[in-house]
Amino acid sequence: MLPLLLLAGAAVAATPLWVGRFDGGAGGLPAGWTIEHLNPRVPPTEYRQRLWDGVAAVETTAVKSMALLVRQLTVELESTPVLCWRWRIDAPLLTADLGSKAGDDYAARVYLSFSVPPAALDLATRSKLAIARGLWGASVPDAAINYVWDNKHPVGTLRANAYTERARILVLESGAAHAGRWVSERRDVADDFRRAFGDLPARLTGLAIASDTDNTGESARAGFADFHFVARDGSCAFP
Score class of each variant (00 low, 15 high):
78 E>I: 11
61 T>I: 13
79 S>I: 15
31 A>R: 14
120 A>E: 03
143 A>F: 00
11 A>P: 12
38 L>Y: 15
130 A>Y: 08
15 T>G: 08
110 V>A: 02
102 A>W: 07
50 R>W: 08
109 R>P: 02
135 L>C: 07
60 T>L: 08
88 R>Y: 06
20 G>H: 03
63 V>G: 12
56 A>T: 02
11 A>S: 08
143 A>R: 12
33 W>K: 05
37 H>D: 02
15 T>I: 09
75 V>A: 06
93 L>Y: 02
57 A>P: 12
75 V>T: 10
114 F>G: 11
118 P>F: 02
74 T>D: 14
108 A>I: 07
68 L>S: 01
70 V>H: 13
44 P>Y: 02
19 V>H: 00
74 T>P: 09
76 E>N: 15
31 A>Q: 10
74 T>S: 10
30 P>W: 04
111 Y>P: 01
109 R>A: 01
140 V>Q: 03
93 L>W: 06
117 P>G: 05
90 D>T: 09
12 V>K: 14
136 W>E: 11
12 V>C: 08
31 A>F: 04
76 E>S: 14
68 L>Q: 03
101 K>P: 07
127 S>P: 10
24 G>H: 02
85 W>S: 01
22 F>W: 02
94 L>E: 12
89 I>F: 03
52 W>V: 15
62 A>H: 08
130 A>R: 11
55 V>E: 05
44 P>E: 12
104 D>P: 05
68 L>C: 02
110 V>P: 07
38 L>R: 15
33 W>I: 04
135 L>F: 07
49 Q>A: 00
34 T>V: 15
103 G>I: 06
101 K>T: 14
70 V>N: 10
30 P>T: 00
58 V>H: 06
45 T>N: 06
56 A>F: 06
124 A>H: 13
126 R>T: 00
135 L>A: 15
16 P>Q: 07
118 P>R: 03
115 S>F: 10
106 Y>W: 15
59 E>S: 10
133 R>F: 01
91 A>V: 10
100 S>P: 14
66 M>A: 10
141 P>M: 03
55 V>S: 01
103 G>P: 12
26 A>Y: 09
34 T>Y: 14
61 T>H: 14
72 Q>M: 10
124 A>G: 10
101 K>H: 08
128 K>N: 03
102 A>G: 15
134 G>Y: 06
81 P>V: 04
35 I>H: 02
126 R>D: 01
